[in-house]
């Protein structure tokens, strides 16, 4: 009740919060990150439009890294398991996160997939996000780096039109570069656009079809690999941080 004049209005108090609205996702992402770091796995969040060539780049990566690196992947897909099937066929241990109508992966979905993943032996683990140049950019998944695939058929202006996605990228893979002779695509224009939205603009030109640039991409990945930790092969669920930890109910916790 209003104490000033007794008018009968309820008293309204301001509660200061000043917190990120997605703080629950941030906490879950930090948890995922501690899993990856504990296992010595390089986790990559691979984003891009539908049809940008994300899966094809991973297939080419598997071919080039065969016998050298163990690769794992989860693929976000609205309705099918086609990408994971393709990746498994290429030699990347893969599973699907079926998102239904959700347009992006979040840290909780990735966490759930990690706990059901058939292997934790990966050297590099790709999180192939849902094809979308908008929504996936704002959800931290626990990755070490964001990589955005941009195909030459999408046009040079995409970085300027989707600045949030490209601003978050650690690397842009310009895909399908074998098509450039057939297009009016200006590589310098896309480099200029990236430099205006990405402070440390870094782009590699690749073609999954011809294999061009895949070695440079593998080198970029290798340079970011964390030291091996010797924690693989068993899952002791170590946590480098302290926060309440609730699972979906199907993952019994071993005591530490």
């Amino acid at each position: 009740m209003c104490e000033t004049c007794g008018c009968g209005d309820p008293e309204i108090v301001p509660i200061e919060v000043q917190a990120r609205i997605l703080s629950d996702n941030d906490a879950q992402a930090a948890h995922n990150r501690s899993h990856f770091e504990h296992l010595g796995v390089l986790a990559i969040n691979l984003m891009g439009s539908p049809g940008a060539g994300k899966t094809a780049v991973l297939e080419a990566t598997a071919k080039a890294a065969a016998g050298r690196l163990k690769l794992g992947a989860v693929s976000g897909d609205l309705a099918t398991e086609r990408d994971a099937d393709r990746l498994n066929a290429s030699g990347i241990v893969s599973s699907t996160i079926t998102t239904g109508s959700a347009c992006h992966l979040d840290a909780r979905l990735v966490h759930h997939a990690l706990h059901h993943f058939p292997s934790n032996e990966s050297d590099i683990f790709f999180i192939e996000n849902v094809g979308n140049l908008v929504c996936p950019a704002i959800y931290d998944l626990g990755q070490a780096a964001n990589v955005v695939a941009l195909s030459v058929t999408e046009g040079e202006d995409k970085p300027l039109k989707y600045p949030v996605m490209f601003q978050k990228a650690d690397l842009v893979l310009l895909t399908k570069v074998d098509l450039i002779p057939h297009l009016d695509f200006d590589v310098a224009a896309v480099e200029d656009a990236l430099s205006r939205v990405m402070p440390e603009a870094r782009m590699l030109k690749v073609s999954a079809r011809t294999g061009e640039g895949i070695d440079a991409w593998l080198k970029w990945l290798e340079e970011r690999r964390p030291p091996r930790t010797g924690h693989r092969g068993h899952h002791d669920h170590h946590h480098a941080h302290d926060h309440p930890h609730e699972h979906a109910g199907d993952h019994p916790h071993e005591p530490h």
Partner: peptide, 22 residues
């Protein structure tokens, strides 16, 4: 390379609510 000073906030700042016990 430039650093972002501001512009990526998604923040809940304040809630105005009836709270008889506060």
């Amino acid at each position: 390379p430039a650093c972002m000073v501001r512009g990526d906030e998604i923040i809940l700042e304040r809630i105005e609510m009836e709270a008889p016990d506060v």
